[in-house]
Amino acid sequence: MSGNGGGLMLKVENLHAEIDGQEILKGVDLEVNLGEIHAIMGPNGSGKSTLANVMMGHPRYEVTEGSITFDGEDVLEMEPDERARAGMFLAFQYPSEIPGVSVANFLRTAVNSVREQELNPMEMYKLLQEKMKIMKMDPSFAERYLNEGFSGGEKKRNEILQLLMLDPKLAILDETDSGLDIDALQVVARGVNEMRGPEFSAVLITHYQRILRYIEPDRVHVMLDGRIVTSGGKKLAEELEDKGYDWVRQEFGAGTQS
């Protein structure tokens, strides 16, 4: 590990990325220290989800400029599975369905892929039981096919279950709060807070301030038009909630400032 006690975990520098020739990220800068939780807020279309996907290495996006350094390593040189094994995790906004593959079977393979030493079946079973309990999931859930026929809330809960099982150093949560009722939101927040500690960092991507009531961020960033336009403490989130994104557009939008 590169740092201890608040060392730099993630550094995104002047990141530009495009999809199908259209530039979405236009120079993102972000630094997350070990043990910190950052929130990235912004209106629809500001590039938040693109940032999440690019950080994890989605093949459809092309990085044209800039760098991402995680735990001292150049992430852009790594395949998504290598990033996962290095300790990165993305909770998907729209996780894919994998018919015929049970949650338990999938988790077994995934957990053993990222761990240096494989767990034996008994250890795996215990770990899964323990984590499912935190997420208030019925044991039968593990036998369902991955994301197939899951409700929106079940999908999100399942993403956080994976987070707990894989125990990464950095989690990126892409709008994990969207579409959740208050109970589900609390369960999801409980899962993330479970991870919180000096060895864990997170980037919470969200449209709303709501989830930040349950997961208190160390830093808040506002994204607009492919860039982080302003950053601050958790007060910034409350300010956004009061004033709305129109305020952000007026303050930081193209054409309003040179």
Binding site: R85, F89, S113
Partner: peptide, 23 residues
Amino acid sequence: FYLMSRGLSEDEAMAMVVNGFIE
């Protein structure tokens, strides 16, 4: 991408989708 983001190599991810398909 989803499966690879959980640490499976591309081959393993492909095999998992296929095994699920014939399950």
